[in-house]
Simulated assay, not measured.
Amino acid sequence: MSATGQAAERAAREARDHPVLDGMARAGFVAYGVVYLLIGWLAAQLALGRPQGSASGKGAFAEIAQKPLGAVVLWLAAGGLAALAVWQVCQAVGGHRDHDGVRRLLSRAGSAGRAVVLAGLAVLAVRTALGGSGGSGSSGGVTGRLLGMPGGPLLVVAAGAVVLAIAGASAYRGLSDRWRKDIDAEGRTGEVGRAVEVLARAGYLSRGLAFGVIALLLVRAGVEHDPSESGGLDQAIMRFRDEPAGPWLMVVVAVGLACFGAYHLVRAWYLRAE
């Protein structure tokens, strides 16, 4: 690596480990965890036929906005999520030094992807705080616009493949011990360690299942050139809700997503930089 590259990595690690960014990143993990807790609750309501809002980041922020001081909380959440996005950028540039070669590159690419997602959530929180809808349309509407473009069906199928890869990575993290690299040793011992393990495994597996269903809906929409076949978690829940035991299966997924949120609250406390 060139001297310039080494200097960039060193600067990224120094920024990541700065007490101010570290503290704000922890606040970002709290905000991220709360978003998933709300998504889990909204998904459970939808699975039981009592929809309270969209089971998505947009729905979670809308739920917060309705509470007293909701706008203040949204601005705080936006700040924390933005700081966490910057922290992940630093990880993408100079982190994951416990890996070598291709594995390090893949880990850094994962951090870059998470930075994009977190930045999007921060923007969504700001739009909601300002009284906007927080989004640019439904998933089906976005898919429909893509399908109308030259090569659009291939783009939709490719998007489904990307989401499926994310689903697989999430499930693998839950089945393996990869999640343990997120937190320091103190959070892995005794009763606390067992509770953290349950939250991590249930959370990552449920997130992987939810993303997997969404990916399959996207691929089907691209293959059949039908935007109505696509959708987010809301659409996935409604498709399975009428199946035998479907509502309860979706409730289990919703509880798992809430576990994913709770795990990130724990991760905020036991944060470990890789």
Rank of each mutant, 00 (worst) to 15 (best):
A119K: 05
R26I: 01
L257Q: 01
G144T: 09
Q91T: 07
A165D: 06
V223C: 00
L209A: 14
R108A: 06
E197L: 06
A65P: 03
V20P: 00
F260H: 05
G40K: 03
A43E: 05
V196N: 14
R10T: 13
A60H: 03
R103L: 12
P150I: 04
S111Y: 09
A221F: 01
P247D: 07
R220M: 04
G231K: 02
A71E: 15
G261Y: 01
G113D: 03
S170A: 15
H99D: 09
I214Y: 00
V73W: 10
W248Y: 14
G131C: 10
A171D: 04
M149H: 11
L147V: 06
A15R: 15
A122R: 06
R272C: 07
A268H: 04
V73I: 12
G231E: 00
A202H: 07
E229S: 09
L265F: 05
G53P: 08
A31Y: 03
R108E: 07
A77L: 13
L175I: 12
P153W: 06
M250V: 05
H264Q: 10
R241T: 02
V198H: 12
K67I: 03
A8E: 14
S176L: 07
G70T: 00
A119N: 04
S206W: 00
G231R: 05
G151I: 05
